[in-house]
Simulated scan of single mutants.
Amino acid sequence: MADVAQLAGVSSQTVSRVSNGDAAVVESTRAKVLDAMKQLGYRPNSAARALKRGEFRAIGVITMGLSSTGNVRTLEAIAGSASRAGYAVTLIPLDAPTQDNVKGAFTRLDELAVDAVVLIMEVHLLDTAALTLPPHVKVVVVDSDATGRFPVVDTDQRQGARTAVRHLLDLGHATVWHVAGPEESFAAGRRAEAWEAALREEGRQVPPLLRGDWTAESGYEAGLRIAAEADCRAVFVANDQMALGVLRALHEQGRRVPDDVSVVGFDDIAEASSFIPPLTTVRQDFARVGEWCVDAVLRELRGETVTGVRLVPTVLVERASTGAPRRG
């Protein structure tokens, strides 16, 4: 800074004011200082400036791994929205969803200096009283039941599942089978609850629930069970990856889609339109989830009180994997 001041013919204080964007600096002086910075290759110390301002322009994200499509696309949306708002993102992925791991992640983010934290949680962890988080950190949660403790942003899982079931019933199917995600997932739980509720409201038989782990392999195993059920004519699968496995199993067992069995997925991954047949699915608006998360963070940082749950609507995307039940 002293070298810049000497070259520009100004005081070090003036260089500091230019570095901090002080609007009171005369434009001709600012131009001389910026030119001197350029000549000397000077870059302001962002960490020192952050400490002085009391903000770091960084958002931490803690996520339960990067293996699921939902987590990756949500993270991508948060990062993009944060960048547009002038914030960097620091990611801490967790191998196991334990209280100690979450506390450790907060400690690490505190060391890395972030202004707020977004948690992408799929497990029943934040609703346990034993988990205490740093009181000074602003927190927003994705996909959790942390209502009352932290603001929550989520896809409207129940609305999406109801739309899928309603679509199949409207096509004329007597009932709808379901391949659910893992028990520890909030999203899977909400989709399964909505599937059962929609059937009961219509007075339809509720088939036994089949469960997978979000992978195509687990969907394939469930698909073999479905293929063996002659009365199964429609199935709602909790994500597109498992739906891919279901489609493969039905094909191998000679059950045609949609002539013999209609299949609906959830997520609308990029490859869904290239499945054979192209998959009818519930589209999640991950971009909107990311925007709303960052919006909640920025509002908290401005001192606003942010509470409750914001649900992002879903849309059914109809393709060739569903149709009216074949008669006879």
Rank of each mutant, 00 (worst) to 15 (best):
92 I>Y: 02
79 A>R: 09
106 F>D: 02
146 A>R: 03
269 I>D: 10
137 V>E: 01
22 D>P: 02
262 S>R: 03
268 D>N: 13
223 G>D: 08
215 T>V: 05
297 V>F: 10
280 T>Y: 05
107 T>D: 02
207 P>M: 08
74 T>W: 04
154 D>N: 11
264 V>G: 12
100 D>R: 04
187 A>H: 05
96 A>I: 07
94 L>N: 02
220 Y>D: 13
235 V>F: 10
54 G>V: 11
230 A>Y: 00
117 V>C: 03
211 R>K: 11
161 A>I: 00
257 V>L: 05
168 L>R: 04
80 G>A: 12
272 A>F: 07
102 V>R: 05
70 G>L: 10
273 S>N: 09
285 D>G: 11
143 D>H: 08
105 A>K: 00
72 V>G: 01
255 R>N: 07
40 L>S: 06
113 A>W: 00
86 G>E: 07
52 K>Y: 07
272 A>K: 06
319 R>W: 07
277 P>S: 06
243 A>I: 08
253 Q>K: 15
150 F>N: 01
186 F>S: 12
292 W>G: 00
164 A>W: 06
60 G>H: 07
224 L>D: 06
107 T>I: 02
225 R>S: 14
166 R>K: 14
46 S>I: 15
284 Q>R: 08
173 H>C: 13
44 P>K: 14
156 D>F: 08
304 E>G: 05
316 L>M: 12
56 F>R: 08
92 I>N: 03
34 L>S: 08
159 Q>C: 02
241 Q>A: 15
235 V>S: 12
72 V>R: 06
44 P>G: 07
68 S>D: 10
186 F>I: 14
136 H>F: 07
167 H>Y: 09
235 V>H: 13
96 A>K: 13
183 E>F: 04
194 A>I: 00
314 T>A: 14
282 V>D: 09
9 G>V: 10
82 A>C: 08
222 A>I: 11
238 A>I: 04
48 A>E: 09
165 V>F: 09
47 A>I: 15
225 R>C: 09
177 W>T: 06
81 S>Q: 02
136 H>R: 15
197 A>K: 13
147 T>F: 12
150 F>V: 07
15 V>I: 12
320 A>W: 06
60 G>M: 09
112 L>C: 05
212 G>T: 04
78 I>H: 00
49 R>L: 11
173 H>G: 12
28 S>P: 00
192 A>W: 06
109 L>A: 07
131 L>N: 00
226 I>G: 07
245 G>V: 05
249 A>F: 08
278 P>T: 04
318 E>R: 15
196 E>C: 08
35 D>Y: 01
110 D>I: 13
325 P>H: 01
311 L>R: 15
51 L>E: 13
213 D>K: 13
142 V>W: 03
313 P>V: 09
97 P>K: 05
145 D>E: 15
200 R>M: 11
239 N>M: 11
273 S>Q: 15
101 N>F: 01
119 L>G: 01
215 T>D: 11
160 G>A: 10
200 R>Y: 08
124 H>W: 13
255 R>W: 03
139 V>G: 01
239 N>P: 05
89 V>C: 10
182 P>Y: 14
81 S>W: 05
114 V>D: 01
186 F>V: 15
239 N>C: 05
35 D>F: 02
212 G>K: 00
207 P>E: 02
48 A>R: 10
227 A>P: 07
195 W>G: 06
257 V>D: 04
